[in-house]
């Protein structure tokens, strides 16, 4: 997951694999952060609670 292990040596496989992994994790993380922050802002604006 992180190249901390003593035996870790970068090679192409790592780059591809880790690239894909962190890309996906990034999207998930950013997406969720966006949703939560926006929800906090929306709520503080007084929106929501009932159908609009």
């Amino acid at each position: 997951m992180f190249p901390f292990s003593f035996e870790w040596v970068w090679d192409a496989g790592h780059v591809v694999f880790m690239g894909g992994l962190w890309y996906a994790l990034g999207i998930i993380g950013l997406g969720m952060t966006y949703c939560i922050i926006k929800a906090v802002i929306d709520t503080s604006k007084g929106n929501g609670g009932h159908h609009h």
Binding site: C35, K38, V40, T43, G48, G49
Partner: peptide
């Protein structure tokens, strides 16, 4: 709950 409603929507 407004926060949850908004979160769900987003």
């Amino acid at each position: 709950v407004p926060f949850f409603h908004n979160l769900s929507h987003n």
